[in-house]
Design a protein around this nucleic acid. Structure first.
Lengths: 219, 219
DNA sequence: GGGTGCTCTCAGTGCGGTCTCAGCTTCCGG
DNA sequence: CCGGAAGCTGAGACCGCACTGAGAGCACCC
């Protein structure tokens, strides 16, 4: 957590620690960069109003250095700085001072949760394995050759086993942009996946939830 | 979403709908209270500057009535009203006008996510299970094949077990828009549900409350 | 330049789902 | 016991969803 005011650091450290988090603080941009560069954090809470090196600059440098840690920006009350700018620079959230601690904690938790999901190595659903690191899928040990797009769709589905994922969510997860393709593209790719899954013996793994989307679950 | 300006309502409704949310609007305090009292919302977006009954009062009444739905307050730009007051009254977040839509959506999503965790997955009424994640219903373990509309109706009923739900509320919950269909459609779908429930052995689960609506309760 | 694999759109098909209508049954007050 | 209102239900028309095969466009590789 990066803030130049001692009082803010103390208060937030106490509050977040009470929520079960480990908190490390920094008071200025350079030390924040140094700490963040170690890559050993799950979330960075970054004040924009810092003496010397502003929070924007810190964020910019971090992203330029390839640090992907989620960043929650904290801004001063008056809107001289634009939230959209921060989000464009790669921030994952934005909180305006003075903020409700509950909301702040909720945002941090949401980012933590997301990070925990993304970081996981191998997803398993029944006999199916989705190896996010190797970008490879296997069924009962046998490799399952998938194109990049097919893999992305399967990954999105397998990350929420037993839960239905809508076509719009799949577009967002596997295409990145909801506008990039039509819903029919999703149907086509589910068709491809099914063909390959059935050939591997995974018949009923990928089910249709009519009117909503699809889900993967062990039979 | 409660706001007295038609333009704001339209803009937010379009934007939030594009984010995949179902939005119902109200223009003043009393109708907001009436709608919110049904308890069928995940988040309430509440403008403070309302003619007649202010947002603060609406919030106060809601909490006094035991409505726990998360509330995101929206204030005018100048700080005549204090955020702390709103938070003390039981608000879960605060956004200052003029706000960035991206930020507003992010806050709403954060609240939705939190609510989704709490209200997670499976509603249970006696032997009946309504799995919101998989969009599937089960009775004594056996899957109960339902069409999307049937599922939506059952979900709305099961989310308030033992409590009568009016046909208009069901229209709002399962059709999204009160005008989308007639009340007779509700009767028809309750009929479909009853047929399938009886076939599964769930006889008296779905009862009629003459002159009002329907309710599900364990026998 | 031809070949290959991937992506995505398009148009067509079949079927399940949705919803209205009209007639019927049930309920309840008088 | 009657009549009207509320609720129920079978029939049927319409519609849009899910799926599929064909193929165009594209990048990459010999």
């Amino acid at each position: 957590m990066v803030d130049d005011e001692l009082g803010v650091r103390r208060a937030l450290q106490r509050g977040l620690t009470a929520e079960g988090m480990d908190v490390v603080t920094a008071a200025d941009g350079p030390s924040a960069l140094e700490l963040a560069g170690t890559g050993s954090f799950s979330v960075i809470l970054l004040d924009i109003m810092l003496p010397g090196l502003s929070g924007y600059r810190v964020l910019e440098r971090l992203r330029a250095d390839g640090v992907r840690t989620p960043v929650l920006l904290v801004s001063a009350k008056d809107g001289d700085y634009d939230q959209a700018d921060g989000l464009d620079l790669g921030a994952d959230g934005y909180v305006v001072k003075p903020f409700s601690f509950v909301v702040l904690a909720a945002q941090v938790k949401a980012l933590l949760r997301r990070g925990a999901d993304e970081g996981a190595g191998v997803l398993r659903v029944g006999e199916l394995e989705v190896d996010r690191g190797a970008r490879e899928a296997r069924f009962s040990g046998e490799p399952l050759p998938l194109s990049p797009r097919e893999f992305a769709v399967l990954e999105a589905l397998a990350s929420r086993p037993g839960s239905s994922v809508s076509k719009d969510e799949l577009l967002r997860a596997a295409w990145g942009d909801e506008q990039a393709a039509t819903r029919n593209a999703v149907e086509v790719y589910v068709g491809y996946l099914r063909k390959k899954l059935e050939a591997a013996g995974a018949g009923e793994l990928l089910r249709t939830v009519r009117g909503h989307g699809y889900l993967v679950a062990a039979p």
